[in-house]
C-alpha cells in the first residue's frame, strides 16, 4: 500500500508539473522526482510487490496509450516520461542495478527534451506538432538541430522503451515478478510507445505538401541522427552483453 501511494503520488506530481508547470518547474520536476525515486529505491523504501507492479505497469500502459495522440510535444514528452518511470519503478529491487539505471536516465532525457522544447517554443511560439511541422520547414537549420536532438534523445540506449536489449531485460524481470499480465502490459506499452515515437517523427514528413518538406533535413534523412542511433545502439549492446546475463533470473 505504502509503495503504491508513494509511487503514484510522485508519478502524478511528475506528470502534473510536466503538463501544467512553467519551464522552471518542469525542469525541477524532471530532475528532482526521478532523484527522489532513485533514493526511495536505493533505500528500499520502494520495493514493489507483485500487486504494485501490476498497478505501475497498468499506469505505464495507460500513458503509452496516451502518448499516441497529443499534438503538443510538451504533453508527449510528459506522457512518454511517465510511462518510462512507471516501467522502471515496476521492477523489484532484487533485480539489482536495472531500476536505478533506468531511473537515472530519465532526468537526462527529460531535462534535455524540455530545454529543446523551450528553444523551439521561443523560436516559433508553439510546441504544437502541426504548427511546428510547417514552421520548421521555413527554418531548416533549426529543424535540423531539433530533429537531430529529438532523434538522439529518443534513441538513448538506456531508454527501455526503445532499445531491444533493455526491453528484453525488463520483460524477463517482469515475467519473474509480475507474471504474464505484467509481461503483456509491458509488451503492449513498448509497442504503443514505439508507435507514438515514430508517429512524431512521421508527422514531420509525408504530408504530401511541397511546402511542408524540409529538403534533406529530416530525422530519417540526416546522417547525424543515424550516427547517434548507431552509437547509442552500440553502447546499448555493450551494456546488455556485460550486465544482462548476470542479472537474469
Amino acid at each position: 500500500m505504502q509503495d503504491t501511494m508513494i509511487s503514484l503520488t510522485l508519478l502524478a506530481l511528475f506528470s502534473y508539473t510536466l503538463v501544467k508547470g512553467d519551464y522552471r518547474l518542469k525542469l525541477a520536476s524532471a530532475v528532482l522526482v526521478p532523484l527522489l525515486l532513485i533514493l526511495a529505491v536505493r533505500t528500499q523504501v520502494l520495493n514493489p510487490s507483485k500487486e504494485v507492479s501490476y498497478v505501475l505497469l497498468s499506469v505505464a500502459l495507460i500513458y503509452a496509450l496516451r502518448s499516441l495522440t497529443p499534438l503538443n510535444l510538451d504533453r508527449w514528452v510528459a506522457y512518454v516520461s511517465v510511462a518510462n518511470l512507471s516501467l522502471a519503478l515496476s521492477l523489484p529491487v532484487s533485480v539489482g542495478y536495472f531500476p536505478v539505471l533506468s531511473l537515472s536516465v530519465v532526468p537526462i532525457t527529460v531535462a534535455s527534451s524540455i530545454i529543446i522544447l523551450r528553444l523551439i517554443n521561443r523560436s516559433f511560439g508553439s510546441t504544437n506538432l502541426r504548427v511546428l511541422s510547417g514552421a520548421l520547414c521555413k527554418s531548416p537549420k533549426l529543424a535540423y538541430l531539433f530533429l537531430s536532438g529529438a532523434a538522439l534523445l529518443s534513441l538513448v540506449p538506456l531508454n527501455p522503451l526503445f532499445f531491444p536489449s533493455f526491453i528484453s531485460a525488463y520483460l524477463s524481470f517482469t515475467l519473474s515478478s509480475a507474471g504474464i499480465y505484467g509481461a503483456v502490459a509491458l509488451a503492449l506499452s513498448w509497442f504503443l510507445l514505439g508507435w507514438s515515437m515514430v508517429r512524431v517523427f512521421n508527422s514531420f514528413y509525408g504530408k504530401g505538401r511541397e511546402d511542408l518538406v524540409v529538403k534533406d533535413l529530416r530525422p530519417t534523412q540526416g546522417v547525424v541522427p543515424l550516427l547517434g542511433f548507431v552509437l547509442s545502439a552500440g553502447v546499448g549492446v555493450l551494456l546488455f552483453v556485460k550486465y544482462l546475463p548476470e542479472a537474469l533470473p
Partner: peptide, 30 residues
Amino acid sequence: LGYEHQNPQSGRFALWTFLTHRFGDIPLLG
C-alpha cells in the same frame, strides 16, 4: 522505406511496416 519523403505514401507505409515488425518482436521476446 521512408527515404522518399516527397511521396506521402512512403512515410505512412514505412510507419505501417515498423509497427508490424515491432508487433512481431513482442512474441519473439516472450
